[in-house]
Design a protein around this nucleic acid. Structure first.
Length: 236
DNA sequence: AACCGGCACAACCGCAGGGAA
DNA sequence: TTTCCCTGCGGTTGTGCCGGT
């Protein structure tokens, strides 16, 4: 099957995005959403490929993106998740709110990989691996965790995976309104997610939902990993 | 000061999955 | 069922920065 090119390559800008381009993209998405990435740059007046716009938005301009250095907890979580999932950066990113798959991939390739012995690095997964497998891995992982002490928490994480997946669908699907992305951006989704978890668990200690649930998230995963509580997964 | 190599990060490329026609 | 289109993902590349010489 011959695939159509993703866009008209001729005359399109490549390379670094300028602040002006960023502003145009953000402004357009705020007003009209991103129902159709392919059509977006033309309608917004950007000389960019739709894929480029999508990548720029997801990895850099989207609300809720955490910039800056990774914390030790985040790095440890990436290592642990990578041991389970391999190079499933999107799946790993699901577990690290505010971090993008590209960012995680970069961090891994630049320095986290070096922390491990070469024989610990998983072989590259087959590209044929279906995307659903990512979710299944997380689902299974969450289910396994659910049998342990933090069952409600983990099952909520399963929901989180679904929510995230659903969110990505929303990005190209539903009403095209930016509201779900912008007004209820990543941080806010996670916020409600964590709030829900707390209410479900009946936790008495406020988990700093507004500040950073991520550290607690990391701590949870680390506890699971370090305790070797996951059957079939190597203990750290 | 100039050069060089390594590093970090942003962005691109090509493929695969999923849905619509 | 097949074909086509769009989106998302993972691998790779390009580029700027920084430290060492």
């Amino acid at each position: 099957m011959v695939r159509a090119p993703c866009c008209e390559k001729v005359g399109l800008n490549k390379g670094q995005w300028t602040p002006e381009e960023d502003e145009i993209l953000v402004s357009y998405i705020q007003n009209y959403g991103h129902e159709n990435w392919r059509a977006l740059p033309k309608e917004a007046g950007l000389l960019r490929c739709g894929k480029s716009c999508r990548l720029r938005w997801i990895n850099y301009l989207r609300p809720g993106i955490k910039r800056g250095n990774f914390t030790k907890e985040e790095e440890d979580a990436i290592i642990s998740l990578h041991q389970m999932l391999g190079n499933k950066w999107s799946a790993i990113a699901m577990m690290l709110p505010g971090r993008t798959d590209n960012e995680i991939k970069n961090v891994w390739n630049t320095h986290l990989k070096k922390r491990l012995n070469p024989n610990q690095i998983l072989p590259k997964p087959k590209r044929k691996m279906q995307r659903q497998d990512n979710l299944n891995s997380i689902m299974e992982f969450s289910s396994a965790s659910a049998s342990e002490s933090c069952s409600d928490f983990s099952s909520s994480c399963t929901e989180s995976s679904n929510v995230t997946e659903g969110d990505s669908n929303n990005a190209s699907g539903n009403d095209g309104s930016l509201e779900s992305v912008h007004d209820h951006g990543v941080e806010e989704i996670d916020e409600s997610f964590w709030t829900e978890i707390l209410s479900m668990n009946g936790c008495d200690s406020p988990l700093m939902v507004a500040d950073s649930p991520i550290e607690e998230d990391m701590s949870f995963w680390l506890r699971i990993f370090e305790a070797g509580e996951l059957e079939g997964f190597p203990k750290i």
